[in-house]
Amino acid sequence: MTVEGRPLEESELIHRAQRGDLVAYGDLVRGYQDVAIRTAYLACRDAAEAEDAVQEALIKAHRALGRFRPGAPFRPWLLQIVANEARNRRRSAGRRTGLALRVAEDRPSDAAAPSPEAAILAGEARETLLAAMERLAEDDRLVLGYRYFLDLSEAETAEALGIPRGTVKSRSFRAMARLRERFAEVAR
């Protein structure tokens, strides 16, 4: 779920893109545009802003491609640029809060079968959990959001947020505790 199953093809695309092949670059990043939009949206909470941030990040990533270490995972490297761009945009716009996350009307058709937990977390509990997430401070919200909403691995979350892996662990742990504290507040 976290790694695209085509490492050879991707390293070849990276190699070609580094040599100035724009078509290869397009192919390389096309597969990541969805997760890039989500990464940006979690940080800036504005659909149009997220789209702009991703576009700008893809331009910057192209410029920085020469510094990409061959063999390293590409996705978190790209997502770090996206996340930075989105956070910077939000900060420079002076906005502290964006649109609140909400549950989509319909589940995406390609979503995995509901887990047993989903059966427990129906309706109201789901809304409570989301509302509690929204009440967390940005750092806590992002670490949990990237880790669980976007299904990034611990290492990927660390790279996307530009923090050490150990910090992801400790921050997640504390964020979980603070999330629990919010349950009572939001459930009224």
């Binding site: 397009g26 990043v29 096309r30 545009q33 969805d34 890039a36 939009i37 989500r38 949206y41 659909a47 997220a50 789209e51 991703v54 576009q55 893809l58 996350l101 909400r102 549950v103 989509a104 009307e105 589940r107 995406p108 979503a111 995995a112 509901p114 887990s115 937990e117 989903a118 427990i120 977390l121 789901r126 959990l129 989301l130 997430m133 949990l144 959001g145 669980y148 909403f149 976007l150 299904d151």
Partner: peptide, 19 residues
């Protein structure tokens, strides 16, 4: 539960021609 919730959270769709 958060992982599962993430699948139902609304995210803006990436425009098909973004790349």
């Amino acid at each position: 539960a958060l992982q599962d919730l993430g699948r139902s959270v609304w995210f803006p769709p990436a425009p098909a021609d973004l790349t």
